[in-house]
Every structure is written in C-alpha cells, then in structure tokens.
Design a protein around this nucleic acid. Sequence first.
DNA 1: ACCGATTTGTTCTCACGTTCACAAACTCTT
DNA 2: AAGAGTTTGTGAACGTGAGAACAAATCGGT
Lengths: 234, 234
Amino acid sequence: MTARSSTDPARVIPEATVARLPVYLRALTALADTGIRTCSSEDLATAAGVNSAKLRKDLSYLGSYGTRGVGYDVDYLRYQIAREIGVTQDWPVVIVGIGNLGHALANYSGFRSRGFRVVALLDADPSLSGEIVAGVAVRPFDELEAIVHDHDVAIGVIATPASAAQDVADRMVAIGITSILNFAPSVLSVPEGVDVRKVDLSIELQILAYHEQRKANGAEAAAPVAPVADGGAA
Amino acid sequence: MTARSSTDPARVIPEATVARLPVYLRALTALADTGIRTCSSEDLATAAGVNSAKLRKDLSYLGSYGTRGVGYDVDYLRYQIAREIGVTQDWPVVIVGIGNLGHALANYSGFRSRGFRVVALLDADPSLSGEIVAGVAVRPFDELEAIVHDHDVAIGVIATPASAAQDVADRMVAIGITSILNFAPSVLSVPEGVDVRKVDLSIELQILAYHEQRKANGAEAAAPVAPVADGGAA
DNA sequence: ACCGATTTGTTCTCACGTTCACAAACTCTT
DNA sequence: AAGAGTTTGTGAACGTGAGAACAAATCGGT
Ligand SMILES: NC(=O)c1ccc[n+]([C@@H]2O[C@H](COP(=O)([O-])OP(=O)(O)OC[C@H]3O[C@@H](n4cnc5c(N)ncnc54)[C@H](O)[C@@H]3O)[C@@H](O)[C@H]2O)c1
Ligand SMILES: NC(=O)c1ccc[n+]([C@@H]2O[C@H](COP(=O)([O-])OP(=O)(O)OC[C@H]3O[C@@H](n4cnc5c(N)ncnc54)[C@H](O)[C@@H]3O)[C@@H](O)[C@H]2O)c1
C-alpha cells in the first residue's frame, strides 16, 4: 500500500479523478438520504454511473477508507471526499452579470447546499442596482473590489455577454480572484495560477448534434447543405 | 496523406477533437466578423485557446483544408467544420422544465444563431401553460409526443428538478429522442444509442474549490473541519 | 480457530490524447 | 525559374486515463 496520508501535501490526484469526486459525493449523499449506511464500490459506482474499478482507483488516491469484504461507510467516505474537495466549509462566491442566466444562478438553491455561498450579485447596468434576487441585492460592478476584500472571495462567476467577459475577468484577477467559472462563450486569457472553467451550452448541443448526424448518416448518405450557422458573440 | 474524404463513413473523429470543433467554429466566426479572410493555424489556435499542433491535428481529421505556406481560408474552413458538426441546418430542440433555468435557456439567443431552434417549451406545472417565453408558448408535458413527431425532434433539454429528470428522460427516449442535454444534477440511465451530456454547475464549482484549496494549502497546512456540505437532490 | 465468501487496493496492460519536430508543399521575390 | 521563407499535415515520443485481473484483507458461520 503506497496510500499517502491525506494530509501529505505531495500527494497528487489526477485531474480526471478530481472531476469525478463531486459525482461520488452527490451519489453518497443520495444513498445516505435513503438510509443506507454502508455500500460496496459496485453499489456506489452504479449510483455514480461509472465503472467500479475506476471508482476504487479514484478513491485510492484519497487514502484507504474502505474495508475489504465489507465496503465503505457512507457517511465517513462522504466526509473524506468533501474534505478532499474542500467543501466542508462554504466558499464565498460573487456572480457578475445578472441577466437571464445570472438571475437563474442567483435563485439556484443547489449552490448553497453544495458548499458555496453567494455573497454578492454585480451588474454594470445601473437600472438593476438595488433589485433583490434570492435575498441578495444587485450592486454596481464598481463595488467588486470592496466585496471581494470584505468577504475574502476567491471564486467568481461570469454571466455577462461574451463581449464583456474578458474585461470582467481582468478586473476579477486584478482584485485577487483566482478561480473563475465562465458562462460566456468566449476564451478567457488569464495569468498563471488562475483557474478558469467554462460552461458552454452551445458547445454541448453541437457535440450532441455531431453524434446525432452520425447516427442519421448510418442509414442515409450525407446531410443537406445550407448557410453556415454560428452567431458569433451573441 | 491519409486524408479520408469527408464523406467517407469509416472516418472516425476522436471524441476530444469533436469537443473542440465547436470552439474552432466560434473562433473562426469571431475572426470573420473582424474582416479576416485567412488565418494560420497559429492565429486560430490562439483565438481558440489551444496549442497549434493540436489544432492542426484536429483539423486533419476532417480533411486537408489548409494551404501550406498560406494557412486556412476562414469562411471555407468555417463551413467545413459546420458541416462536419452538422449545424449547416437548424436542429429542432425541446426544453422540458420551464423554471428559473428553463426561462433563461428559452430566452437565450445563442441557441438559434448556433444551429438550434427551440420548437417547444414543456412543463408539468399547469399554471405555466400558455405563458409565452421568447415567443414560444409553454405547453403541458403530455404534448411531448405530438411535438416530437410533428417537428422530428432528436434533441431534448432537461431543466427539471433532479427528482423528475429520470422520468422525463425515459419519456423522451420512449418517444424517440436520441440526444439529451441534462441540467439536473442526477445520473441518467438510458439505453444504448442514446447520447446524454450533462451540464453541472455545482460540479464545476467544486472542481474549482479543490484547486483553490490546494493553492491555499501551499502556504498553510490543512483546511479547518466542519459539517459535510451537499444538499442532495436540491 | 479455521474456511469459504466477499470486497478492497493495486498492478499491469492497452487505448487515447498531447506535443514535438520535420518533410512536403506552397508563395513571393528576384 | 530558382531560392528563401512560410506553414501545413503527420509520424513518433510521451503522458494520462481506463479497465481487467488478482492478491491481500476482512467477515460470518461452524
Ligand atoms: N441565458 C442562457 O440560458 C445562456 C445559456 C448559455 C450561455 N449564456 C451566456 O451567458 C451570458 C449571459 O447570458 P444572459 O442570457 O443572462 O444575457 P443577458 O444579456 O440577459 O445578461 C447579461 C447581463 O450582464 C450585464 N453586463 C454587461 N456588461 C457587463 C459588465 N461589463 N460588467 C457587469 N455586468 C455586465 C448586463 O447588464 C446584463 O444584465 C452570455 O454570455 C450568454 O451567451 C446564456
Ligand atoms: N437555476 C440554476 O441556475 C441551475 C443551475 C444548475 C443546475 N440547475 C438544475 O436545473 C434544474 C432546474 O433548475 P431550476 O432552478 O430551473 O428549478 P425550478 O424549480 O425553478 O424549475 C423546475 C421546473 O420543472 C418543472 N417540472 C417539475 N417536474 C416536471 C416534470 N416531471 N415534467 C416537466 N416539468 C417538470 C417544474 O414545474 C418547474 O417549472 C434543477 O435540476 C437544478 O438543480 C439549475
């Protein structure tokens, strides 16, 4: 057993594993909610929609938290994963751009219950200032710096149009935000040490469309031909 | 040059490449909008935020659409990628679950400009029926079958609570939908031949939190300890 | 206290994805 | 028309990830 201690800072968890840990956490929570106290890697893998060997390997990066012949204690493993991810306490988050999507995000209760707390909603449009969304007031974008410093915010969410996204990101980085979740369809450029993840609905749909077309072309030859569709920075 | 014809059905494009083609398409559209007619792999790679060798290899799976010593014709390449993805014509899409998120999605104009047309909004809540969102009326969930058949819909979007997601997916599959974009935080089980992609805000934030914690622990030892946060099927 | 059943943790192998590096192919200038 | 300069397309090396398989460890029954 190489099993590094979970407090060993040299231990490195593969990125693919990191991306699955939240899925396991959610699956464990679902199991716990149905009263299940113990589960095998097979059970958990099924609930999480992955292969059980992959699950066991993923968990082995965290340490040795199971019992051979028995399985995993649901609550214990849940706590270990939550600690590993860093959601045993809440992370303060700011959302910038309170339009269609920003409103939905602000109203999303799953935020709070999964380790995040929306401390501020910011928008450049003065006519939105003062509006209360889900108990939080919309404030002018200028106040970003004060808010970030007051609440020690490390994570920012961008829900502005693509044209404003880079500017907003630059401001966030200048102020000290080091993790950004970007919903705008634009490539952000940020300095070393700042993490950016993007959520892009159109890309997801286009990936589905590609496979859909392939399924269709299994029978028929090729798709009809027409003008190129891509609305740019819409 | 192995360069299979783009109509060769045996040609297979790696999944990782498929996921990047929409990014290239978007970058090309942005370049075209600024009046650029030709670009090198270096230019396009920068605009798309990837390595130029990776870009060239990705494009080589589609065929040989560049000119050595010159680069790529922006409009021509854009068309070829759009054709490959299958967005030279619009795909009809239905959205199920017109709550916070469903409203935002329905109002999202980027849908239409990137190859998708929302043909129906469906919700189980009768009090929503008849409401017009972005020019489309919300209809009862029962009408799914008729709509899917009338418009030959292959792609469905799920924006219901997690507790309803599997049921909705089952209904979609039964009716003939073969691609699903799922915004609910739940693992969907679907038969062979049906593609599911998920968009999960909480997972993205938790991945950011993991890295954020690691950055912080570079200086300090370990994070404080508190109750586990994960609100289940919220 | 032992034995068979069970399930984890890990090793090994293969597949996939990324990046480097360069020959081939093209343009432009003289 | 030839040579210098560019840039593509791709072979090869490398790294990461997935999954099969199994030894080690634990449990329950006798
Ligand atoms: N609505 C969706 O479902 C959806 C889906 C996928 C992606 N997106 C993307 O998310 C982003 C937001 O979409 P939306 O539909 O909410 O747009 P929206 O136009 O409704 O809202 C954008 C908001 O950002 C604010 N804003 C603009 N510039 C700003 C700046 N510099 N600083 C601060 N705030 C600024 C605007 O005042 C507005 O309130 C867009 O980039 C869009 O492409 C939206
Ligand atoms: N709001 C967000 O920003 C956000 C972000 C990430 C994920 N999500 C997820 O997206 C989903 C929707 O979120 P929301 O905030 O819009 O929730 P919501 O409660 O506002 O809306 C859900 C809608 O689904 C409808 N619905 C319920 N059961 C249905 C059924 N069986 N068939 C058809 N319609 C049904 C409800 O009537 C309601 O209108 C949730 O699973 C949520 O976890 C939301």
